[in-house]
């Protein structure tokens, strides 16, 4: 814990040293989700509804996804950047230090400019909480919080999976983006607009639907849903397990091949 705080301080110090760069990145971190938001609201302004969802309802989906992704990026950037950590020999350095490997990978790349996305996501979420017309209860609020946290776990797990993959090859890593960036893109709209094969994949293989769409149905009080839906985000935690195993296999392989 103390070490994590130290990493955080170092990251803050290093990144604030280059003010112009920091502000540019922070601006970008705000502008990117904002331009997307503008796009969504323009579409709603023109068409009024998206597969039976109002703008407020859809933005709830968008907000949860953005906040979850921002949390994951804020913490797990090191895994997202792992190919570079491998390439420049930083991982060897990490191996000769007496601390957990994952902790050190996390700590080496904390990126504070990602707060931008978090802030945008948070504001949208707050606005949508009102605009969606949901009658809030403690259970529903807790569901949203759980969705966000477990969503962040799913995104982080994907970053870790990508890093494990990087032990094998640096070619083709772009494929991982399908599930991270692509997953974010997809999960910010209600899942019902997608084709069945896509919905099934993102429910049972990578459980984005479980941390977002399905529990949201309960929050919005759609017929046929019940409080049991509030527990679905926990499926996101189950997804973390195979990703962690893959990471462990990757590090094992690394120390036995040295490449």
């Amino acid at each position: 814990m103390r070490l994590l705080l130290r990493y955080l301080r170092l990251a803050a110090k290093g990144q604030l040293r280059y003010r112009s760069t920091f502000y540019l990145t922070a601006f970008a971190q705000i502008a990117m989700p904002l331009s997307l938001l503008a796009g969504i609201s323009l579409l709603f302004a023109r068409f009024g509804t998206l597969g039976g969802w109002s703008m407020g309802e859809a933005l709830l989906c968008y907000g949860v996804t953005q906040v979850a992704f921002a949390l994951a990026e804020l913490s797990s950037r090191g895994f997202d950047n792992f190919p570079s950590i491998l390439a420049n020999g930083e991982f060897d350095r990490i191996l000769v230090r007496p601390r957990g490997l994952m902790l050190q990978v996390l700590g080496s790349r904390l990126d504070l400019s990602r707060f931008g996305r978090l802030i945008v996501g948070g504001i949208v979420l707050a606005w949508a909480a009102k605009g969606s017309g949901v009658e809030w209860t403690p259970l529903k609020a807790a569901t949203i919080a759980l969705m966000t946290l477990c969503g962040a776990v799913v995104f982080s797990s994907l970053f870790v999976l990508g890093a494990a993959f990087a032990f094998l090859t640096t070619d083709g890593l772009e494929l991982v983006n399908i599930f991270t960036d692509g997953g974010r893109e997809m999960a910010q709209y209600p899942m019902s607009i997608y084709e069945r094969w896509l919905r099934l994949f993102f429910t049972f293989v990578i459980p984005f639907a479980c941390v977002n769409y399905l529990p949201l149905l309960f929050v919005l009080g759609r017929p046929g849903t019940g409080p049991a839906y509030a527990l679905l985000p926990l499926a996101g935690l189950a997804f973390a397990l195979p990703c962690l195993l893959a990471w462990r296999a990757g590090t094992r392989r690394y120390v036995s091949t040295g490449s």
């Binding site: 112009s20 760069t21 990145t25 971190q29 904002l34 331009s35 796009g39």
Partner: peptide
């Protein structure tokens, strides 16, 4: 100028893409 390509490109991308 800034020696930070990420910042430069991340700055440009959202404006351009929209």
């Amino acid at each position: 100028v800034t020696l930070s390509p990420n910042a430069a490109f991340m700055f440009a991308a959202p404006i351009y893409e929209f």
